[in-house]
Nucleic acid binder design. Sequence first.
DNA 1: AAGTTTGAAATGTATAGACAATTATAGTTA
DNA 2: TAACTATAATTGTCTATACATTTCAAACTT
Lengths: 252, 252
Amino acid sequence: MVIQTDMIDKSSVIPIYYQLFKLLEEQIRRGDLKPGEAIPTEHEISSHFEISRMTVRRAIAELVSAGMVYAQQGRGTFVATPKLDNIVFELNDFNQEIKQRGLNYKTTLLEAKIIRADKELRDKFELGEDYKRFLYFRTVLSAEDERLSYEVKYTIYSKSKPILETELKDPSLPGLIATHTEYVPMSAKKVLQVAACTEEEASILGIASNSPVFLIEQTVYDQDLKPVGWSKAVYRGDRYKLTSYDGWYKKD
Amino acid sequence: MVIQTDMIDKSSVIPIYYQLFKLLEEQIRRGDLKPGEAIPTEHEISSHFEISRMTVRRAIAELVSAGMVYAQQGRGTFVATPKLDNIVFELNDFNQEIKQRGLNYKTTLLEAKIIRADKELRDKFELGEDYKRFLYFRTVLSAEDERLSYEVKYTIYSKSKPILETELKDPSLPGLIATHTEYVPMSAKKVLQVAACTEEEASILGIASNSPVFLIEQTVYDQDLKPVGWSKAVYRGDRYKLTSYDGWYKKD
DNA sequence: AAGTTTGAAATGTATAGACAATTATAGTTA
DNA sequence: TAACTATAATTGTCTATACATTTCAAACTT
């Protein structure tokens, strides 16, 4: 039980379930409760604060719908691992077809090295002059020998584990951060734009210069909202599209 | 009370709240309960099916989180109007700035007419040869005398109200359908792609030919999932971008 | 040793009731 | 007539309890 008492005011106008929800949310956010860990049982919370179990369940239901915990009947309720690959920019179409047809779908590491920081990079990471080094990756995503996207990634350099492997287990930016730095990716901001591709990008992807492409810039943050990774990806405009369904769309 | 009894099986392994949720969902979808209308009160449902009010509330909570109804303390619970402009393709940046700074932001009708159907159009609407006419609109979105996007829209022609006004109250595709046809827009599918703009589009938007642009194709459906509107919009690539936040992002 | 049974612990569903907060309406009063 | 007041109706919060379902591990049996 990590929870502290004297933080829930039963006489407040703010509902108890909401106070408890905020309390648990804060503990999870701060890392007092870590992903995979069990949160206290409903009975424990209930008796600790002397509130009804139904009220506790209401608070936990909010956490579940926020995607921060998941409950398993008979086992307990556990802190979820932040999902940093949401549906919004899940560029589908081609990727979908690839998965359905089981085609070859691989990420190739073109380059990985330690680089010196310049001002632009330090600004992106909101860091001072004392940070001198970053990790730098260049990867290509391809299917059936056709190159589909090209991505440049930067992470903060950590002395502790600067192991640069040729084989990338998880080539995503959050994955690289988790593997090669001491930081834990917790949230991300993605910006999608359109652009005409440069000659370099065109030659790597095997398309004509100035072809229209998707351009996705991503910044990954740790639990303190400190930027710990940045990437810029270029996706072939003729291979990707984005679909969404609105309103009372019936999935069944 | 539109609800029929003998449709909830208390001895079933399927939870009562879920049966009730599905029942209400179906009634709303079918149009037995129309947008703006109140659904039966919790007490009515509770006593009608002889189930607890808390169980009814659980079912209604599911409807609320599905966005199909909204509750107002002291008044009742009402069927929501389907929101056909979700956040996914809410191309922001520029539009956001416009709203914040209160700039001039208007949609201009370039053209509106009744057209003859060709095969391509009939296919898009999944209609037979007996449908001969469609409504056709061309609009431009501009801010401070700068044109930002260009859109072509088609809807099924309804004899009943083919009034083509010069002033468009709601120039969105769902709005045009609601105003100029007998159909009620209930859901939509949007596909976002990148493209190099054509010469026509370039001259309308005042940009260079082959400039990269966002291209959004939208199909709007009525409650029976019958396509009743289709549009193709071109957004200036240098004015729009799309941002999303992932993971345990803290909004506060 | 291996499989089976039992029971405790945890979440899931459901009930009945109480009171609070909000809204609308009908009634009362100035 | 207009403004205020009481009341009823409706949703919101909370409690206490009961039993179901699932999981896990300890105890038991073969």
